[in-house]
Design a protein around this nucleic acid. Structure first.
Lengths: 205, 205
DNA sequence: CAGTGTTCCTAGCGCTGCTAGCGAGGAGAG
DNA sequence: CTCTCCTCGCTAGCAGCGCTAGGAACACTG
């Protein structure tokens, strides 16, 4: 009897936990969608609460604060980015073309999903980044870049550092363009120049 | 008599305008200093008003809003950046060394004055950038980069676009590092890699 | 069915950027 | 020198922000 009761309690418990987890996903999805539709300024705790049809304090039973919600959105964004990078790399042949493909995919992601990109790579958000405790999704995304850059590293060059440098170039292009500092229309040519610097034709042929 | 009165009135007018202009400079300086000391979050209109020893609404008689104040700080920042870039370029010899010098100066500026850098190149601020109406200070800063990059452009490459691409690389390094996405300690090596891509040794020698 | 514990909502705090409207004080006219 | 006017900067307040305390209502336990 006692054991049965315990089992029942456990299943009720698990159902509750499942519902909680589902609601948490709902919060993150709502925050992301709202941000992508109207920008992060429109994502207020009140607005978000209305969106999920709960009251404000519920948010704080899932996340420490608004920043934590944004961090969760960022992690989900990394997963999406990884998928896109992987797909583009898989479809490309040759080292130079692989580098170009991930570059296009990366900047395309940043331009197509500006709000998501911002929370991942621009906004201050308390996520561990350049450490072993970084979210796996983030490490995978970096890994995709790494495997595209690595074959193009010259002798004596650290592939990881070279990848970070290439990443910085892509990131700079995306952010400067999106904030109006660089004109949109020449993006492809700038990207081609960047790629050319990291994969000289001599190396590819 | 009438003319004398008019002249007196004019000098009074000019004195007032001078005082107003001085107060405007005071506001911008206070905003910049406060931001550099405690970050932009600490720069509230109340705090800023207290700093300049006037009441809040005075700020709005000079600037349309907080964003306009930040834009003014950004313009002043561009002037400072131009000075530093120019000095570093002048002290360097050879195309490759010039490129490296401005790269070091640029990233050094970003690391040394993070709040100022953010308002210039990261925060959304309604300044015309990539247009002829851009602030002269901004165009000069870009010009400094341009004259360092131009000699290194290959045949058929647009020097302006190449400069924008180099700028993006520097900007990416600064922002990713400052937001914790890239570890600080390897900055010099990443910068060296970037410079190496834009000024191959073969070109310099 | 009563007791118990959790869950979620209402209400409110201190702060933000920004603005309306008043009162003091100097400028100009006679 | 006095009176009028007008400019200037202040006090006070609005709506909205992130976040939290405390009580009501619900579901489960025995």
């Amino acid at each position: 009897m006692a054991s049965v009761a315990r089992i029942v309690a456990m299943t009720i418990q698990t159902r509750r936990e499942r519902e909680r987890a589902e609601r948490e996903r709902l919060i993150v999805t709502a925050a992301r969608d709202l941000a992508e539709a109207e920008g992060w300024d429109a994502v207020t705790t009140r607005r978000l609460a209305a969106e999920i049809e709960y009251s404000q304090p519920v948010l704080y039973s899932h996340f420490k604060g608004k920043d934590a919600i944004m961090a969760a959105v960022a992690v989900r964004g990394c997963e999406e980015l990884t998928v896109e990078l992987r797909a583009s790399a898989a479809a490309a042949e040759g080292a130079r073309e692989r580098l170009a493909a991930v570059g296009r995919a990366y900047t395309g992601f940043g331009r197509r999903r500006p709000a998501l990109y911002d929370v991942m790579f621009t906004h201050r958000v308390d996520l561990p980044f350049a450490t072993p405790e970084a979210p796996p999704a983030l490490q995978e995304a970096f890994g995709e870049l790494l495997s595209a850059v690595e074959p193009l590293a010259a002798e004596g060059e650290d592939p990881a550092l070279l990848t970070e440098t290439y990443w910085a170039g892509l990131h700079g292009l995306v952010t400067l363009m999106r904030s109006g500092r660089l004109p949109e229309q020449a993006h492809d040519r700038r990207l081609a120049l960047l790629i050319g610097r990291f994969a000289p034709r001599a190396t590819a042929r």
